[in-house]
Nucleic acid binder design. Structure first.
Lengths: 147, 147
DNA sequence: ATTTATTGGTTGATAAAGTCAACCAATTGA
DNA sequence: TCAATTGGTTGACTTTATCAACCAATAAAT
């Protein structure tokens, strides 16, 4: 790696960030994991929403997604309905309980994020976000094959 | 969170990054996981080095570290010797095989990091690193207790 | 219209990452 | 001298992540 960006920095940042999130969720007695919450948030942000859309969006294995959705369903946080136009697909929406849960998550995460961003300006955070997005794009872009 | 930095961006970046690393290691037939490699790299970078120093540095659970070190030891990649000045502590060093392994890792990761950083200038990467370090500092700084 | 390929989702199996508690020996602090 | 803490190990468990096989439905090819 170029000396400017150490992979270890990325590892440590996410490790610290996830621990901060888990602690914030535990403090608030939210009995969900980070992946479950990310799933709920993605359902909120996509319309219409399906398991394959989430898997594509988060680059998750569909088997993992299936289990996460099964769990969220059994907790009554999401609705799964057959899609009207494709018998294979399920239409995912948040239940009332799911929406209420996410409202609590939002409050939780706001505190965690205030702590994360303390002392950094909006300009700096925006710059970080833009750079991070470019790094993601680099990694998610298919490698042109030599064949 | 402030609108400028989305937590989801961090998740997606590390997810993509770890997948890229795992792929790079698999392509090179390195039969180690990301955590094992980070452990070896930390041993290389710390002198003297002990398990507690690594756990402190990476903010890992010491039980997790113990198992990682046991595995690296059984693969002959590290040496564990009693510390001369503290009967509780072990002095950790890389074996010749461990050093050779890290040389392969370095080559591997250079390619992964070139891909990660493609199209970004050294200035941009340095800015990202500096901002990431500040975010880590924010999260790792103890919260002053109200008591 | 029929066949083949792909997609959406589930289940089984497994590995990696991560956490918590209990324990013991050695060291430090009271 | 005794209590508290530290360094490390082991047991147990949870969460995250991956791969393969499978089935039903849809799309593409013939």
């Amino acid at each position: 790696m170029s000396q400017a960006l150490a992979g270890d920095t990325l590892h440590r940042l996410l490790h610290a960030y996830k621990r901060a999130l888990r602690q914030a969720y535990a403090d608030e007695q939210l009995e969900l994991g980070v992946a479950q919450i990310r799933t709920l948030k993605t359902i909120r942000g996509l319309s219409p929403c399906s398991a394959s859309a989430i898997a594509q969006r988060l680059k998750w294995d569909k088997a993992q997604l299936a289990r996460l959705l099964g769990d969220l369903d059994s907790r009554g946080l999401v609705h799964r309905r057959p899609a009207p136009d494709d018998g294979r697909r399920q239409q995912l929406t948040l239940s009332d309980a799911g929406q209420a849960m996410l409202a609590r998550v939002d409050a939780c995460e706001q505190r965690a994020h205030e702590r994360l961003a303390k002392g950094l300006s909006e300009t700096e955070l925006a710059a970080f976000e833009a750079l991070a997005q470019r790094l993601i794009d680099n990694l998610e872009r298919p490698i042109p094959s030599a064949d």
